[in-house]
Design a binder for these strands. Structure first.
Length: 300
DNA sequence: CTCGATCCCTGGACGC
DNA sequence: TGCGTCCAGGGATCGA
């Protein structure tokens, strides 16, 4: 499942592999995950891929054409979200086409840039420079670029659960379920704690944990779960370093307590019930606070 | 503002 | 071996 480290890995690989190549033609398969398939077909051929960068969990392929002015400002781009199972990488000429190949771009060196996505949870859109700017405005700070002050402000002003905040792309862009759980475990914070109720030191811990984990994961090319491969067809290694994600019932590597799984923000959330203390009281039905309140009423 | 529920989609795991 | 069923999950959307 491509999150920030996986998408970063793919972006770097694509940059190495296809930057500078010109697109000769486009062949589309299923297009229900593409905003504007007609424009992809008409606008991409003839354009060169100037560069590939990551933006949150998106891949941004900057496209250029001789007629385009020199300034990057007016260059259009292809925005790609890999969803759960999306893969984007160049294939050698004649390599058999995998099932669920939905977009094929023939490059000027004979290779084919193919988008493969069995579940089609991915997204693709061809955007003008202007609509691209507008689109990207909706997202929060990059967790690797954000300073501690910005991170603290984003987290401690919200009353939502910390797990929901980490997953919310308007708050921070690029964090997904795996790295949210791993960071919370490392910082010893329960996923249901409210952002605004975290102590300052906990926010600092979380900030460091998140950055450290993301950076480490990028170095070893991300986590390969459900067949994730990067732009060079290589799997990542970070899944071997998962401390909580997917480890329900197994002992916490810090304290041996069984890892538990709960649903937070609609996602499986793995945590250690001992290292990551559940919030007191809270507003989940029948809380301690309410019971005390009722008792006090009876006394009076 | 924040929540949960629902939908999208397919492959893989599991039970019989 | 072959069914059927359930589940995974990012994001959009909707109603509470």
């Amino acid at each position: 499942m491509p999150e920030l480290p996986e998408v970063e890995t793919v972006a770097r690989g694509l940059q190495r592999q296809i930057a500078g190549r010109r697109i000769l033609s486009i062949t589309l398969g299923k297009t229900d995950f593409i905003n504007n398939p007609e424009e992809i077909e008409t606008e991409l051929p003839g354009r060169a891929i100037r560069g590939v960068v990551r933006y949150g969990k998106f891949l941004l392929l900057r496209l250029t054409r001789k007629e385009d002015a020199e300034e990057i400002e007016c260059e259009p781009a292809l925005l790609v979200h890999l969803g759960m199972t999306g893969m984007l990488r160049p294939h050698a000429p004649g390599e058999p086409q995998a099932k669920h190949t939905h977009v094929v771009a023939l490059l000027d060196d004979g290779r084919e840039l193919r988008y493969i996505d069995p579940r089609r949870f991915g997204r693709m859109a061809y955007l003008s420079a202007e609509s691209l700017r507008e689109e990207l405005r909706r997202f929060g700070a990059d967790p690797l670029e954000a300073g501690l002050e910005e991170f603290t402000a984003k987290i401690s002003q919200k009353r939502a659960r910390i797990k929901a905040l980490l997953l919310d792309q308007r708050v921070l862009r690029g964090v997904g379920n795996i790295y949210a759980d791993e960071s919370l475990w490392k910082a010893r914070i329960h996923p249901k704690r409210l952002g605004a109720r975290l102590r300052k030191e906990q926010v600092v811990e979380l900030y460091r944990a998140l950055q450290g984990i993301l950076e480490r994961a990028i170095v070893i090319r991300g986590s390969s779960i459900s067949d994730f491969l990067d732009a060079e067809g290589q799997p990542g290694e970070y899944q071997r370093r998962h401390r909580v994600y997917g480890r329900e019932g197994k002992p916490c590597v810090r304290c041996k307590t069984r890892i538990r799984r709960v649903i937070v923000a609609g996602r499986s959330s793995y945590f250690c019930p001992r290292c990551q203390q559940a919030p007191r009281g809270g507003r989940t039905h029948g809380s301690e606070a309410r019971k005390h309140g009722e008792e006090r009423l009876k006394k009076k």
